[in-house]
Simulated scan of single mutants.
Amino acid sequence: MTSLDLCSDSLDGLPVGDALGAQSFVPGTSLAALLDGDPPAGPWPWTDDTEMACSIVAELREHDRIDQDRLAARFAEHFEPYRGYGAGAVVLLRQIRQGIPWRDAAGAAFDGQGSMGNGAAMRVAPLGAFHAGDNRTAALQAWRSAEVTHAHPEAVLGAVAVAVAAAEAGWSRLTRSRPEPAELLDVVLAHLIDGRLMSGIVRARRLLGVSVAEAAYELGNGSQVLAFDTVPFALWVAATWLDDYPAAIHACVEADGDVDTTAAIVGGIVAAHTGSGPGGIPTEWLTRREPLPDQVRPTR
């Protein structure tokens, strides 16, 4: 497999998780039905998680690396507010579209602190898969992709953590050596620095083996829409069910909270390891997901 194959599989897994997770917010849709393997009829619309991930993948397909100015322009060009963007992201992307430099827009957010939201993490798994076998490059490129919209270090590190996990997931597929859950989290921790995000992933490592409910209670389920409330639980799920895509997505649904985002992160990481087929993305789910946008129409 090529790096682009792994990236494409991750991009299949991310939107399916995103779109299925978003169904939990549709009136009349039962969480129990989702957990029982009876998802609603399609098409399932995807959200801002997928839209921004597609811009990252388009950048990688055309240039093999992240150029921050180009990526900012892509984000602004393809920005559709009805996709579920947060208020801060709407303001920032409109500013970039109006010509305000992305560094100024991102740095001014939240009274000059920059956003510590989960947006940079939710979109980055395919980038990590693209750099399978090179965790350092995955981390650096994830950092660059995050800075375009998120100036706060916690948000940037959230993107780094997800990208490294996806890179390791893709590498374990190539080498046919599934890492133990603790091993996967150890690889991620080796690329982080002290902070709330790192502390959350340390806790996630200690909680391996507990129930989904307990893990979500201790780590958060994305309800605060912050990186350190979202990424540790998502990595706990991905590490636990790295070879079982449906079970991983079901765990995100069971945890409730910001389900589309946790399922997008988890789906992108796990699909880099499983692809489709047995243990991978169910064909039925792929066919019910809304088609991807023109900039990343699948080539296979």
Rank of each mutant, 00 (worst) to 15 (best):
A58Q: 12
A58C: 06
E59W: 09
E59G: 11
L60M: 05
R61A: 13
D64W: 10
D64K: 13
D64S: 14
R65V: 11
R65W: 09
I66C: 06
I66H: 06
I66L: 07
D67H: 11
D67N: 14
D67C: 10
D67V: 08
Q68G: 07
Q68P: 01
D69K: 11
D69N: 14
R70Q: 12
R70V: 12
R70H: 11
L71M: 07
A72N: 03
A73Q: 14
A73R: 15
F75N: 02
H78Y: 15
F79E: 02
F79C: 01
E80D: 14
E80T: 10
P81C: 08
R83D: 02
R83T: 01
R83Q: 06
G84S: 03
Y85Q: 03
A87C: 00
A87Y: 05
G88H: 01
G88C: 05
V90F: 01
L93Y: 08
Q95E: 15
I96Q: 04
R97M: 04
Q98K: 13
Q98D: 15
Q98S: 15
G99M: 10
I100R: 11
I100V: 15
W102K: 01
R103G: 01
D104E: 15
D104S: 13
A106W: 03
A106Q: 02
A106Y: 01
G107I: 05
G107V: 06
G112H: 05
G112V: 09
Q113L: 15
G114L: 01
S115R: 00
S115I: 00
S115A: 07
S115D: 00
M116R: 13
G117R: 01
G117N: 04
G119W: 02
A120N: 05
A120Q: 04
A121L: 11
R123S: 08
V124Y: 08
V124W: 08
P126H: 12
P126C: 09
A129V: 07
H131V: 02
H131R: 11
G133P: 03
D134I: 11
N135Y: 12
R136P: 00
R136G: 12
A138R: 07
L140G: 09
Q141C: 06
Q141W: 09
W143Y: 14
R144D: 14
S145H: 06
A146F: 05
A146E: 00
E147A: 09
T149I: 01
H150L: 02
A151P: 00
H152F: 04
E154Q: 14
E154S: 13
L157K: 15
A161Q: 05
A163P: 06
A163V: 07
V164E: 03
V164A: 07
A166L: 07
A166M: 04
A167S: 15
A167Y: 04
E168D: 09
E168Q: 15
A169N: 05
W171F: 14
R173Y: 14
